[in-house]
Simulated assay, not measured.
Amino acid sequence: MSVEREENESRVEAPTLTTRVRTAAASVGVYDLVLAVIPLVLTGGALVGTTGHVSFTAGTAGGSLAGAVLVWYAVFGIPPGYS
């Protein structure tokens, strides 16, 4: 009977999906967010230029400017290795 008890206590349950998602979300850093947002602002600028009241060139330029600001922030605002 004690052998069964030890086997049951030594079993480790696999993490659930929500636990894995929470763990992955907690490990996302600032640089990961910047890399995720850059294509979004570029695409947003193109969409505004296509469907909005501005020209495609102006929309793309605005998205590119926002992307450049994000890259500047990642490189100079919070430089790699900065603690």
Rank of each mutant, 00 (worst) to 15 (best):
residue 57 T to E: 04
residue 1 M to W: 11
residue 27 S to H: 11
residue 57 T to A: 05
residue 14 A to S: 01
residue 83 S to F: 09
residue 78 I to F: 14
residue 54 V to S: 04
residue 66 A to D: 04
residue 51 T to I: 09
residue 4 E to C: 01
residue 74 A to K: 04
residue 27 S to F: 14
residue 6 E to G: 05
residue 32 D to P: 11
residue 47 L to N: 06
residue 49 G to L: 02
residue 36 A to F: 13
residue 2 S to L: 09
residue 30 V to N: 07
residue 76 F to G: 04
residue 45 G to M: 05
residue 57 T to K: 08
residue 28 V to N: 00
residue 68 A to G: 06
residue 33 L to D: 14
residue 72 W to R: 01
residue 65 L to W: 13
residue 50 T to D: 08
residue 39 P to Y: 01
residue 1 M to Y: 14
residue 47 L to C: 02
residue 65 L to I: 14
residue 4 E to Q: 00
residue 12 V to S: 06
residue 64 S to F: 05
residue 50 T to N: 13
residue 22 R to N: 13
residue 32 D to L: 02
residue 83 S to E: 08
residue 45 G to V: 03
residue 10 S to P: 07
residue 6 E to M: 06
residue 18 T to H: 12
residue 32 D to H: 09
residue 19 T to N: 10
residue 2 S to D: 07
residue 32 D to A: 02
residue 49 G to C: 08
residue 44 G to M: 10
residue 60 T to M: 15
residue 80 P to W: 02
residue 1 M to R: 10
residue 1 M to N: 07
residue 55 S to H: 03
residue 48 V to L: 15
residue 78 I to E: 12
residue 12 V to I: 13
residue 62 G to V: 06
residue 30 V to T: 15
residue 51 T to M: 14
residue 4 E to L: 10
residue 80 P to D: 08
residue 9 E to V: 09
residue 79 P to H: 06
residue 46 A to L: 10
residue 32 D to M: 02
residue 22 R to F: 02
residue 77 G to T: 00
residue 44 G to S: 01
residue 61 A to T: 09
residue 69 V to K: 04
residue 48 V to Q: 11
residue 34 V to Y: 10
residue 55 S to K: 07
residue 59 G to F: 02
residue 78 I to G: 05
residue 63 G to R: 09
residue 39 P to S: 06
residue 37 V to F: 15
residue 52 G to I: 00
residue 40 L to S: 04
residue 35 L to I: 15
residue 41 V to G: 00
residue 45 G to Q: 04
residue 11 R to Q: 04
residue 55 S to P: 03
residue 8 N to R: 06
residue 67 G to A: 10
residue 22 R to W: 03
residue 45 G to D: 02
residue 14 A to Q: 01
residue 42 L to N: 01
residue 2 S to C: 12
residue 72 W to D: 09
residue 27 S to L: 12
residue 3 V to C: 07
residue 38 I to R: 02
residue 82 Y to A: 03
residue 45 G to T: 12
residue 9 E to D: 10
residue 70 L to E: 08
residue 68 A to F: 00
residue 20 R to K: 08
residue 60 T to D: 04
residue 42 L to K: 13
residue 29 G to C: 02
residue 22 R to Y: 05
residue 1 M to H: 15
residue 57 T to I: 15
residue 60 T to V: 08
residue 34 V to N: 07
residue 47 L to V: 12
residue 49 G to R: 00
residue 5 R to H: 11
residue 38 I to V: 15
residue 71 V to S: 00
residue 72 W to N: 05
residue 26 A to V: 02
residue 10 S to V: 06
residue 43 T to M: 11
residue 75 V to H: 06
residue 77 G to Y: 01
residue 43 T to Y: 14
residue 23 T to L: 04
residue 43 T to K: 11
residue 36 A to R: 12
residue 14 A to C: 15
residue 64 S to Q: 01
residue 33 L to A: 00
residue 81 G to T: 07
residue 9 E to S: 07
residue 15 P to H: 08
residue 70 L to V: 04
residue 36 A to Y: 12
residue 52 G to F: 06
residue 76 F to W: 11
residue 77 G to K: 01
residue 20 R to N: 11
residue 8 N to P: 12
residue 33 L to V: 08
residue 11 R to P: 00
